[in-house]
Write a protein that binds this DNA or RNA. Structure first.
Length: 826
RNA sequence: GCCGUCGUGGCGGAAUGGGAUACGCGAUUGACUCAAAAUCAAUUGUCCGCAAGGGCAUGUGGGUUCGACUCCCACCGACGGCACCA
């Protein structure tokens, strides 16, 4: 008797699949298209993580099922290969990043193929390939032409260790996302992308896509839309008024002072009018030097300086208001100025500290609280009832807000306004291993785009690609590459030496997969042309799965860039302005004991060793079985063994079926209604579970089915084995193919039709009726399916147990749930 | 502080108004074996009981319901996101 030996079978089937092109997606096919996308990995030197295996296996299960259901499935993969770790490794070892990348992608590809993922390898992409980044650069040129890319001197988040500027999204708790070093501020000229222009649409269009609710919420919170108004506060002796953004127009009557951000341009502009300008400038300088994290530390005492000699006027009360600056007011948000009152904790704290007058105008519903608020003992920030607010007295906050805006709008002192927390995207990196920004600076003509025909601007091969302490790109040292002619005036000019952030390549990669041609002439050497016909056929992505950590980064950026491409007509209008129809996410795989896997803790599980010991199918089944897909889950080496036992069971069972049954005698599924029921029910359950990403329960029901087969093994016929193998094939495809062949079925298992259940057979003929007394289970009776309430009642009351328990009591009420339960209330 | 997710056996978890603990792991006992591993069989929430049987159990406390792991309210705890955002 042969034993289940993955080593002997897996390689064989991988060669068969990848050699025969069964996983190739057909451009323009008449079949229904289905575009399934997984986030392409960053090919690190560590190889594939078991977390990658989990999410890739999950989507592979879906891809395989969708294919068996007759869809033309596009399930592609590639490499997001620009980035710091590769550059750092290259510097350390003295090997060119492109060589490191090649080595790493080769390793990733080998690992993925060894796991039997059904990727269409003919569409493999690599963001560091000049043929690929030609289009990344082209998109940048379009952004530049549309005025969405601009250069600005800004204080960027600077990581002194990685020597790199970071986007806000890459700073976690004041520290560099990659290395954990405390981020500093550094003023630099940077290319910025106006993602803020798309803020409103990025929020609104979430209504039209099927993303997990938590993903939508996170994106919305990140974009931070809030509706309010701009209010004008006139300043005595100065024509210009100070504009303030507020969402709390209902509190305007309690506004007693104004606070400006230290960097507000009012200070610079009217410094002659400020009597204590030296003190103010000193405060401003201090605020500039402290990092955002220090400035926004909640435990820190509030500080501020009054602008002496400046007096503003409250447009609602016409009362005079002193003007202050304080570092908790941020330059970047709203107008960089607020009106302050007793209904904001920070304002309240500041007024108390510096003895600034306070007034309340919102009454809370709680009387006790109200007393404290009135006496300025406590700060009330919530909505309530207005008072001290002239004609608006007695109104609720929600009703008063729009009315006050309208009232001041009539006087030309306010207008409705929506603000966003989202900031423009810092798009420059001073590093070697990224896409060169395709711009040229000419002292006569300014910034000029590289002509499209000159794309791609290839990264020059250099010896020294170390980042510099000055913060200048290493490319700046390559004079041969830098010095060019101005595309406009042909005079001397210089190339931009900054490169793009590593999000640039992933902004549009889902389009690259779709673009790749695979007609006969292109089959050997697929072209990466901007092929609108193919884009139109494949887009949008039907199902995109990835990590929650990319919700405010890649997912937001790529939605933005897609909208931009749609706006300029680079993608067909018919496909809509959202790239992804559906977005799901997976949970992380943790080390044993529930801690994060890391090299330093030595708890990293290498998929290679799992495959070597147990085989790819076991790893796949275990990853699906370990727990709910969207939840974090710790690795359990013992659990892997259980999955191997399960596959072994199926292996033995399929090869051991009764020879008489093999020849097509009446099978158990025809003879035994219970077996027929369980088989059909399993088909239904697994089909539904895969769609709902409940892979753990899908595997569990496969296990139950296998146990069922074993109990009935003398009566299992070929047809039943066939169904079992088809259901197994998305999860353990190699074993399924092997047993498919061993059972002498024709063709490849992965090419077959997905089994259908017969609804007639999932209705049981006999049901187990639960008999309860006062809601407690007291007996179980077998009854015919479809039994009526009356029949059930008399049946239940005949039961000895029930008779005893009911005794002389008269049932008050009887609840009957068809085919399930009868509850006698006494 | 705000928002979100989640608390079920020794462990991963199943069940989302109707049999709590499916499936798997682990553990115990037995069979096979010179022995071990593997495999197979049985048991496995907890308490009382010789047993039949019964009581108690889904973070805590209330509520709705004939019936609550599931719905509602309050609290406790864990994880994740955001955070002087006006």
């Amino acid at each position: 008797m042969k034993r289940y030996s993955p080593k002997l079978i897996e390689k064989k089937w991988q060669e068969k699949w990848y050699g025969s092109g069964v996983f190739k997606a057909q451009n323009g096919s008449k079949k229904r298209k289905f575009y399934l996308l997984v986030e392409f990995p960053y090919p690190s030197g560590d190889g594939l993580h078991v977390g990658h295996c989990r999410s890739y296996t999950a989507l592979d299960v879906i891809a395989r099922k969708k294919r068996m259901e007759g869809n033309n499935v596009l399930f592609p993969i590639g490499w997001d290969a620009f980035g710091l770790p590769t550059e750092n490794y290259a510097i350390k070892k003295g090997v060119h990043p492109s060589i490191v990348t090649k080595k790493n992608t080769d390793n990733f590809r080998r690992q993925m193929k060894e796991l039997g993922f059904s990727f269409d390898w003919s569409r493999e992409i690599n963001t560091t390939d000049p043929k690929y980044y030609k289009w990344t650069q082209w998109i940048f040129l379009k952004l530049f032409e549309s005025g969405l890319a601009y250069k600005d001197k800004i204080a960027i988040n600077w990581c002194p260790k990685d020597k790199i500027g970071l986007a806000n999204e890459e700073v976690i708790g004041g520290k560099c996302e990659r290395c954990g070093t405390k981020v500093e501020k550094k003023e630099k000229e940077q290319w910025m992308i106006k993602i803020t222009k798309y803020a409103e649409r990025l929020v609104k269009d979430l209504d039209n896509v099927n993303f997990l609710e938590k993903i939508k919420t996170q994106q919305k919170e990140w974009i931070g839309e809030s509706h309010g108004a701009i209010v004008k506060f006139s300043v005595e002796g100065i024509e210009e008024s100070i504009e303030v953004f507020t969402t709390r127009m209902d509190t305007i009557f309690s506004g007693t002072f104004l606070i400006l951000a230290p960097g507000h341009n009012f200070i610079e502009k009217y410094k002659n009018k400020i009597e204590n300008i030296d003190e103010v400038l000193k405060y401003k300088e201090e605020a500039k030097n402290s990092s955002d994290i220090d400035r926004t530390n909640l435990d820190k005492d509030v500080t501020g300086v009054q602008l002496k000699g400046i007096v503003a006027k409250n447009p609602a009360t016409n009362e005079e208001m002193p003007v202050w600056i304080a570092d908790f007011v941020l330059e970047q948000y709203g107008t960089g100025a607020v009106f302050a009152d007793a209904h904001d904790k920070r304002d309240f704290k500041m007024a108390k500290k510096y003895g600034i007058a306070l007034r309340t105008s919102i009454k809370p519903n709680d009387e006790l609280l109200w007393q404290k608020v009135k006496n300025l003992e406590e700060c009330f920030e919530g909505d309530g009832t207005l008072y001290n607010s002239s004609q608006f007295d007695g109104m609720s906050s929600a009703i008063a807000r729009p009315l006050i805006i309208a009232w001041l709008l009539g006087k030309g002192l306010a207008k409705p306004k929506t603000s966003y927390k989202l900031r423009d995207w810092v798009f420059s990196r001073q590093h070697y291993w990224g896409e060169p920004i395709p711009l040229i600076f000419c002292s006569q003509c300014g910034w000029q785009p590289v002509p499209e025909k000159d794309l791609p601007i290839e990264l020059p091969k250099v010896k020294n690609y170390k980042p510099t302490d000055t913060g200048e790109s290493p490319l700046a040292a390559i004079s041969k590459w830098i010095n060019v002619k101005c595309p406009k005036c042909k005079g001397f000019a210089k190339r931009e030496t900054d490169t793009m952030p590593n999000w640039a390549g992933s902004n549009w990669y889902y389009l690259a997969y779709a673009m790749l041609g695979n007609s006969k002439s292109e089959a050997r050497n697929p072209k990466l042309d901007w092929n609108e016909k193919n884009i139109k056929y494949w887009m949008s992505v039907d199902w995109y799965n990835g990590g929650m950590e990319h919700t405010t980064l890649h997912l937001l950026y790529s939605r933005f860039i897609f909208k931009f491409l749609w706006d300029i007509g680079a993608v067909p209008k018919q496909i809509g302005a959202e790239p992804y129809k559906k977005r799901t996410s997976h949970g992380m795989v943790l080390g044993e004991g529930g801690i994060k896997m890391s090299k330093s803790k030595g708890n990293v599980i290498n998929p290679d060793s799992v495959v070597k010991q147990y085989g790819a199918d076991t790893l796949r089944v275990y990853e699906m079985f370990m727990g709910p897909f969207e939840q974090m889950i710790p690795w359990d080496a013992k659990g892997v063994v259980g999955c191997q036992r399960f596959l072994e069971k199926i292996y033995n069972l399929a090869l051991k079926i009764n020879p008489a049954m093999r020849r097509g005698a009446k099978s158990n599924s025809e003879l035994d209604p219970k077996f027929k029921f369980s088989l059909n029910k399993t088909i239904k359950k697994i089909s539904e579970d895969i769609e709902a990403m409940k892979f753990n329960t899908a595997v569990s029901s496969l296990m139950i089915l296998a146990n069922n087969f074993i109990e009935n093994k003398e009566f299992i016929a070929k047809e039943d084995v066939k169904t079992l193998l088809l259901l197994l094939s998305p999860f353990a495809p190699h074993l399924a193919e092997e047993l498919w062949l061993a059972s002498s079925f024709k063709g490849l298992c992965c090419n077959q039709k997905w089994p259908k259940y017969n609804p007639k057979f999932i209705e049981e003929e006999k049901v187990l009726l639960i008999v309860q007394i006062n809601g407690k289970v007291r007996d179980k009776i077998e009854a015919d399916f479809g039994i009526s309430q009356k029949e059930a009642e008399s049946l239940a009351l005949k039961s000895e147990k029930i008779k005893v328990l009911v005794g002389g009591n008269k049932p008050v009420k009887i609840i009957f749930v068809a085919n399930k339960l009868i509850n006698i209330v006494i």
